[in-house]
């Protein structure tokens, strides 16, 4: 019965939408996620690539902040980055690295959509082993698309 209950919870989550956003509680593998980039050290402009360090969480807080951008226009995506991420941090927003949720999930990581602030999620379940984390960060960066703010 337990597995049925668990299945039902996940199944229901796929269709249950948060009241204000229309975002399912469970992240669909096809969903795009954005990691906003506020340091020029996190991307190569000439190589049009995101650096692995952009996807490497802190040792003492193994959570990586991303935003769920499915269904948003480009303008809305940048607005979240500017209003919710860069301005409160007193940083300039240079660009973002977009990845699909499936890339994250195939690395054994979990996407925890806390919706605080809106559309925010943390990438969790990072391994304790730092070399392994670095390798995963390389994998995420290799699959990410760099989008610079024009």
């Amino acid at each position: 019965m337990n597995y049925l209950r668990r299945f039902w919870t996940i199944f229901k989550g796929c269709f249950h939408e948060s009241p204000d956003l229309g975002m399912p509680d469970v992240v669909n593998p096809k969903e795009p996620l954005s990691r906003y980039l506020m340091s020029r050290r996190h991307f190569w402009r000439e190589k049009k690539a995101v650096k692995p360090v952009a996807f490497l969480p802190r040792d003492d807080n193994l959570r990586l902040s991303v935003f769920r951008i499915d269904g948003l226009t480009e303008g809305e995506i940048w607005e979240i980055g500017e209003e919710v991420v860069a301005r409160p941090a007193h940083r300039n927003l240079h660009g973002r690295g977009d990845i699909t949720a499936s890339i994250v999930q195939t690395q054994g990581l979990h996407i925890d959509p806390d919706n605080n602030p809106r559309r925010h999620a943390d990438i969790t379940w990072w391994p304790e082993d730092k070399p392994k984390r670095l390798e995963i960060a390389q994998e995420l960066a290799a699959s990410a698309t760099l989008i610079l703010r024009s």
Binding site: R41, K47, P52, V53, R58, L134, A141, S143
Partner: peptide, 21 residues
């Protein structure tokens, strides 16, 4: 580069799937 823990990172990049850090 520098990572979120304030540690230096040396990176050799030859392409998206050809990188050593």
């Amino acid at each position: 580069d520098v990572d979120a823990d304030g540690e230096f990172v040396f990176e050799w990049y030859k392409g998206p799937r050809r990188v050593f850090s």
